[in-house]
């Protein structure tokens, strides 16, 4: 069950927002379980030090196998399309060849936690999805304002330093809802 972030301790460096980290695993045994029931809360944090403390205990995405996702979202935003903060927005989706997930996930979440995107309240959260073929990194934002979406893309390209042929697509959540593939 979800627990809110503790207050930053003495001498710690507060973050602009508190965040919550979730985990989900899809397998044969829980294929019919509803998406939100499959989400496992890991921890939430309010400072840089609390983040590193939690992060040090967690298996790197690249070392995971099977159909696994990590979700890092601002406290109060559920990592689901239906959440009020998400439903009018969308996400940048980046396909990663095997071997890039851990580095790119770390670069992405550090940029998010450090407010490097400079788009005000727009960022909702980040997801790394480990799959059999390519892995998928995504960054969710609130609105479908083209200027904001482009600015987020530019920062993603700066902070992730992706291989030149990396596929980046923007997908609105309403499109995702219609997508039956």
């Amino acid at each position: 069950t979800f627990r809110p972030a503790p207050k930053p301790g003495e001498g710690e460096h507060p973050l602009q927002y508190n965040y919550a980290l979730w985990f989900s695993r899809r397998s044969q045994s829980n294929k019919t379980v509803r998406y939100d029931q499959n989400l496992k809360f890991i921890a939430s944090f309010a400072s840089v030090e609390q983040f590193w403390n939690i992060y040090s205990y967690i298996v790197r995405p690249g070392d995971m196998t099977g159909h696994v996702d990590y979700h890092l979202f601002k406290e109060g935003i559920r990592p689901m399309w239906e959440d009020d903060a998400n439903k009018h927005g969308g996400k940048w989706v980046i396909r990663l060849k095997k071997g890039l997930a851990s580095r790119c996930w770390e670069n992405l979440i550090l940029a998010m936690l450090g407010e490097q995107f400079m788009v005000g309240e727009e960022i909702c959260g980040a997801v790394i999805s480990i799959r059999f073929q390519d892995d998928i990194l995504s960054l969710w934002n609130r609105s479908n304002d083209q200027a904001i979406i482009s600015r987020i893309r530019d920062t993603l390209q700066r902070v992730l330093n992706l291989p030149p042929n990396t596929i980046m697509d923007y997908k609105s959540h309403t499109d995702s809802l219609k997508d039956t593939s």
């Binding site: 460096h13 602009q16 840089v48 030090e49 590193w52 403390n53 550090l110 940029a111 450090g114 490097q116």
Partner: peptide, 21 residues
């Protein structure tokens, strides 16, 4: 208002602080 901003190198620096362990 002001925003609390950290670049990557600052966050990596703070990773080694005793408070982060």
């Amino acid at each position: 208002g002001t925003r609390i901003v950290y670049d990557r190198s600052r966050l990596m620096q703070l990773r080694n602080s005793p408070l982060a362990r």
